[in-house]
Design a protein around this nucleic acid. Structure first.
Lengths: 201, 201
DNA sequence: GTCTATATGTGGATAGAC
DNA sequence: GTCTATCCACATATAGAC
């Protein structure tokens, strides 16, 4: 086999992957403008510069497109969080909190797809959902590194940031009314669990 | 005018209100089984024991039905929270937190309609949304009564319980993995704001 | 792979008889 | 007010030519 022939399959794969990525990006653009209720295959095709049947040459269904978007979002989050991560565990916790909150609030529709169920009937595939579960592990290990190794510690941690993000996006998308309290909430959390005082009541 | 004739209009109003309530209850039943994606006028009519056109004799549109459900949910929450409310402000705060969390988690679809946007294209009317805003006032006043009168205090408060509820419903509907930490989170919050220690960082 | 044309289903909402 | 029958817009998805 010549070198060209040997590489041809990967060329095709690359072209195919590029075409898929074009569709994904058109889909993000569309839901950004119209919301998930406006994600129709016709409109998506138009925005991607093709016709509806062409979409089905790259994805089996609309759900498959949503699943690819979900997976890409999870990978984006993993990349964002690992890039610039500090060395110290305590600084890393702050970094994790800030990164999650800014990642979610800077793109509400991405947040909705990753952490809510904005499309009735769509649930991520097991493979994509595994990416989501995997994204919890660094937080779990980092909390354990500062002595917070119990399930309760992680659960309260996730609830804190889920709440900040949910309130910000639901009540003041694009603003900072809730996100500005990330540092305060983090102090609250760390003070409570790392400097235990007697419980009330 | 005879007494009967004078009362007839209210009879009709009562019958009409009862019919509307029947439809609303059928709608809650339907979304409980099928989710908001399964709320179709045909199916709703069947469950309410009528035909689709009859629904339009009582509601102008599907959105009007959703709006009535939203308003009813807000009123239910107000009633739930005021019934059994303690006298002391501190006990009331605990009551408010527990009531909100149990109210939301005991009925996930109600929670979704009241605090998320599960139906693309539907937004509550101004009148219904005013009920939601009104439901925030008792919390605001109660926090102020214990010395937490700033916007930040209320915003962090709402984020805390929004997060607990969101995590519980999204990851373990029907369970208590997150809701069991309501007391802990409340202590965390009160310890931070009522016994201020020096901030980290 | 991409197109034109269309199948097929379902949604909300309505006309008009009773 | 309630029904039967239906309209009409729009959705996902596919057949078949090129």
């Amino acid at each position: 086999m010549s070198k060209v022939a040997a590489e041809q399959p990967s060329w095709r794969e690359a072209r195919r992957a590029a075409a898929r990525q074009t569709i994904i990006e058109a889909a993000w653009s569309l839901v950004g403008d119209e919301g998930f209720g406006g994600l129709a295959m016709r409109d998506l095709a138009r925005r991607a510069g093709v016709t509806p049947p062409t979409l089905y040459a790259y994805f089996d269904s609309k759900h498959a497109i949503l699943d690819a978007m979900f997976a890409q979002g999870q990978l984006e989050f993993a990349a964002r969080r690992s890039s610039g991560r500090p060395d110290e565990p305590m600084a890393t916790l702050r970094w994790f909190a800030e990164t999650f909150v800014s990642f979610c609030t800077e793109n509400p529709v991405r947040y909705q797809l990753l952490y809510q169920r904005p499309v009735p009937g769509f649930v991520p595939s097991d493979a994509s959902y595994a990416l989501a579960a995997r994204n919890l592990e660094p937080t779990r290990r980092c909390l354990a590194a500062v002595g917070l190794a119990e399930e309760a510690h992680l659960d309260v941690w996730t609830a804190l940031w889920a709440g900040v993000v949910a309130q910000q996006i639901a009540n003041e998308p694009g603003g900072t009314r809730w996100t500005r309290h990330v540092d305060t909430v983090l102090d609250m959390y760390l003070d409570h669990y790392l400097k235990p005082t007697k419980r009330r009541r």
